[in-house]
Structures are given as C-alpha cells and as structure tokens.
C-alpha cells in the first residue's frame, strides 16, 4: 500500500506530499503521523503541500485534523507552500483551518516552528530555573 514518507529532522517531523492525495492515503497519513509524533516525541510537524494542486473538503478536514491532533500531543503543525488555487478552494468550501499555522515555504515554515518551539522551551527553562532557585 502507498504511504507518504515521514522524515524526522531533530525535533521536527517533515512530511512532503508529492502525489495527489486520495482519501485512503490521507487517512493513512493521519494515523501514521500521530503514531510518529508519539513515538519520537517530536515537537513540531511541517507539512509541505506545494505539489498538491487539487483539494476537496475531505482533504481540507484531514489537514485540519492533523493540526488539532498534533496540538493535543503538544506538537505544533505548520502547513507550508499552499498553492493559490488550493487556498481559494478551501476558503470557498468554508474551511479556514483555524487551528493550523501556515507559511509560504519550507524555509519560513521551519523558522516559524523554531520560533514557536523556542519560545515555549524558553518558558519551560525559565520555569525550571525558577524552581531550582
């Protein structure tokens, strides 16, 4: 069965969707990704959909779902490289992907993830420091 590879990069998981997603594949991706987040303890998930040219409401929901699921498992999700046509379609379908962060390209997405996780780690360290003192 086809699977979309999930790459691990340090604290992050990197998913690049290079083929057209069909429903089964998307569902697999969703469950694989959640498994991987739990297994690796990743802090951030970056999904690159720049090669995706067709979406439907189901795919929009899956992307939203992945965002919410990672959130409860304490990992930030960033969707990068959405095509204009895809963005317009999703908006016309009424899917605003409220819980998901977005970025223009992988580079900016990585920076955003690092920024988000960095700030939360700083916070934790601060708290650790204060507890030590």
């Amino acid at each position: 069965m086809d699977r979309i590879p999930i790459l691990r990069m340090g604290n992050f998981l990197l998913v690049t969707i290079q083929v057209d997603l069909y429903d089964r594949l998307a569902l697999n991706l969703e469950s694989d990704l959640v498994q991987m987040v739990s297994k690796t303890g990743a802090r951030g998930v970056l999904i690159d959909i720049s090669a995706l040219s067709i979406v439907d409401s189901f795919m929009g929901r899956i992307i939203g779902n992945i965002g919410s699921m990672s959130k409860i498992m304490d990992a930030e999700t960033v969707v990068v490289g959405m095509q204009p046509a895809v963005a317009i379609t999703l908006i016309e379908l009424g899917l605003e992907l409220k819980g998901v962060s977005t970025a223009l390209n992988v580079e900016k997405g990585m920076a955003l993830l690092q920024h988000k996780i960095g700030s939360s780690e700083d916070l934790e360290e601060d708290q650790d420091d204060s507890s030590v003192e």
Binding site: V79, M82, P84, V86, L90, T102, K108
Partner: peptide
C-alpha cells in the same frame, strides 16, 4: 474576509 483568510492559508 475571504481574501484575508485565503492569504492566511497561504502563510502570509
């Protein structure tokens, strides 16, 4: 609002 949401989806 639609335009703003679409831009946000693109990551801007």
């Amino acid at each position: 609002i639609k335009t703003v949401s679409a831009t946000r989806l693109m990551g801007a």
